[in-house]
């Protein structure tokens, strides 16, 4: 993938908020950009809003406010058929697996490929390949309900990646796995990432992101607490370190202000849509008001 392609956003969230009744703030003013081909880890305690964020990205939940763009498509503007087409290109490994217990492992994995009208031979080969890669060889005819939690989790991951998605959303993908199997799953994720799949992984598992060399976004109570962080073993040599610092700075700048997404080429003046322009103006006004109010509170003369 070229640098220009990498600069394009796969996920773009601008001031996204979601409130669940009666007054649970699941997401509060979340702004985040994940570039094509990037691996981004989403961390935070339970209830921080990671799952809600992933649900928004695959169109299961709708935000109360804010702008969401996935693979160049603004989610709240998509028609039913456009959303269906987008979902065929997004692989999702759910925290609760969403497997069909009465169906076999092979049938569960084939599910997403059948919907995309893949040929029988492709489905057979892909299923076999994934079962080998995830250490589930010989389990294809076993009913999913008969598997252990760890095995079910791997089947859910296999289903998510089976259709060669452009974006993979994984919610606690290693939650039930031992170290060895976690390594298998992470290897699979990296293989897909090398082929161009963008990964957004929500996890508690410190071990999988601390040495990963990828961006880490931390959430707390529906907010982005620590915007970005690059894993410590990401670079080899001065150039890579330099590049890492550049990315880090860019991401920090991006997360520091809600206006940051508008600094990208995609949202520069004259390139914004009417809705984006409206949102931009709203943010400008709100930022201005907040600055004035802050100064007034601190007794600074305006």
């Amino acid at each position: 993938m070229t640098t220009a392609e990498n600069d394009q956003a796969m996920i773009e969230l601008i001031r996204v908020s979601k409130m669940y009744p009666p007054d649970i703030q699941a997401l509060a003013d979340i702004s985040l950009r994940v570039n094509k081909g990037e691996i981004c880890y989403l961390t935070g305690m339970s209830g921080a809003g990671k799952t809600t964020l992933l649900r928004m990205l695959c169109g299961i939940d709708i935000p109360d406010r804010g702008y969401i763009e996935v693979a160049g498509k603004e989610l709240n503007k998509l028609s039913g058929s456009e959303m269906q087409a987008l979902r065929q290109n997004i692989g999702v490994a759910y925290q609760d697996f969403k497997l069909l217990p009465e169906k076999t492992v092979a049938q569960n994995i084939a599910f997403s490929m059948e919907v995309a009208y893949r040929s029988r031979s492709f489905i057979r080969q892909q299923t076999k390949k994934l079962l080998v890669q995830l250490g589930l060889s010989g389990k294809e005819s076993t009913r999913a309900g008969k598997l252990s939690r760890g095995e079910q989790q791997r089947v859910a991951i296999a289903r998510a990646v089976a259709n060669d998605p452009v974006l993979l959303l994984a919610d606690e993908p290693t939650g039930n796995l031992d170290t060895e199997t976690t390594a298998l799953v992470m290897d699979l994720f990296h293989t897909y990432n090398k082929q161009g799949t963008t990964l957004l992984i929500a996890t508690h598992d410190h071990s999988i992101y601390s040495y990963a060399g990828s961006r880490v976004v931390t959430m707390e109570q529906g907010r982005l607490l620590v915007a970005d962080e690059i894993g410590t073993n990401g670079g080899n040599g001065a150039n890579e370190a330099n590049e890492t610092n550049k990315v880090k700075a860019k991401i920090q700048a991006h997360a520091a202000s809600p206006l940051a997404p508008f600094k990208s080429r995609r949202y520069q003046k004259n390139k914004r849509t009417a809705q984006e322009e409206k949102l931009y103006q709203q943010i400008i006004i709100k930022e201005g008001l907040e600055t004035v109010m802050g100064k007034l509170t601190r007794g600074v003369e305006i």
Partner: peptide
């Protein structure tokens, strides 16, 4: 459950 899953994987 199956129908919901079909929706989630993008079935028309």
């Amino acid at each position: 459950k199956e129908l919901e899953l079909l929706r989630l994987v993008g079935a028309s």
